[in-house]
């Protein structure tokens, strides 16, 4: 299998302007050197806490922002440095499903015209053909085609998310960024939408970047999982390896915070790791490892040298000095 999406050292910094002259005084490093690749037909889960740069990363990969640095290759085409005007022709390959199904649909457009918008922009189908394609897409995502002329506010959250998915599918994309598509939905509806996404992946051969902070849901849908902290990917591994034997202390802490659904087992099986302190500001990240201010196993070297993101075991990447032979035996100092 060859990678469909390759992201190398992606950086997305938002400038901070201050003072009377609006001079640039710094930058929020929302995404600061992220590297990953997604195989064709694979789902890469991207997890992390609020504000760690997951969504920005997803949007930057689709070039909804002008990225600060880095390289993005989708389907063999370098899009990181292509100007926005030329990206238009490449848009059909890559689409996005948004977090808030209420906000991502124009309240003044009918469902039919929302789903047909990509067709209007990129195809010259006749009116009847477009109608047919829209009806077909609505069938595909499990919406009744009779709802064509209704408005988004007449639907439930789950149905709205299906509308958003139908719009993303309209141009037969190969790669879809799902930006927390289930975060705004009820638990029962979450399962429906996730199952729909999986079904579509099987039948259409889609590749997903699935952004979420719901670790259990990512475990269900993803093939590999990347964990982000403060703008960087700290660990990337196949799903089962990551959930069974996390390498990075941050991943360990995250996993220990997942609630145990079985009350009989709750509080017995694992020890919860409670991180102290707050996430540092992405405008002013700590020197050395980004996680060194909160890491339970911090070493001296962590405060000086930023660990490199590298393959520590076959298929498993981590950015942590604990897995570097040079620093073995130094032992935790805090």
């Amino acid at each position: 299998m060859k990678p469909l999406v390759e992201v190398r050292d992606l950086k997305m910094h938002f400038p901070i302007h201050a003072g009377l002259l609006r001079r640039k005084v710094g930058a929020v490093k929302a995404v600061d050197g992220v590297t990953f690749s997604i195989m064709e037909g694979e789902t890469l889960g991207l997890v992390g806490e609020s504000g760690c740069g997951k969504s920005t990363c997803g949007r930057a990969v689709l070039r909804l922002y002008d990225i600060t640095a880095g390289e993005i290759v989708i389907d063999g085409q370098e899009i990181g440095s292509v100007p926005q005007g030329k990206l238009r022709a490449l848009r059909p390959t890559m689409q996005m499903v948004f977090q808030d199904p209420q906000a991502s649909l124009n309240p003044r457009m009918t469902v039919g015209s929302i789903i047909a918008e990509p067709l209007d922009e990129h195809t010259d189908l006749s009116k009847a053909e477009k109608r047919e394609r829209v009806a077909e897409l609505m069938d595909r995502v499990g919406l009744n085609r009779a709802f064509l002329n209704r408005y988004p506010h007449e639907f439930s959250g789950g149905q709205r998310q299906r509308i958003g998915i139908a719009r993303a599918l309209a141009l037969n994309p190969r790669f879809i960024v799902c930006d927390e598509p289930i975060a705004a939905l009820d638990v029962s509806i979450q399962a429906q939408v996730v199952n729909l996404l999986e079904e579509l992946q099987d039948s259409l051969g889609l590749t997903y970047l699935f952004i979420s902070h719901d670790l259990s849901m990512v475990r269900h849908i993803a093939d590999r999982v990347a964990v982000m902290y403060l703008g960087k990917v700290v660990e990337l591994a196949p799903r089962d390896d990551l959930y069974d034997r996390p390498l990075h202390p941050y991943t360990e802490a995250l996993l220990s915070a997942v609630p145990e659904p079985d009350p009989a087992k709750a509080g017995q099986t694992r020890e919860r790791i409670v991180l102290q302190g707050d996430v540092p500001s992405p405008a002013n990240p700590p020197e050395g490892c980004n996680f060194c201010t909160r890491c339970p196993r911090v070493m001296d070297v962590c405060r000086r040298i930023d660990p490199e993101f590298r393959e520590v075991a076959p298929g498993r990447f981590a950015a942590c000095h604990l897995h570097d032979e040079r620093y073995q035996g130094a032992g935790p100092t805090a």
Partner: peptide
């Protein structure tokens, strides 16, 4: 987000 969605469509 719907404006962002329109931009992501191109």
């Amino acid at each position: 987000e719907f404006v962002l969605a329109a931009r992501s469509i191109g």
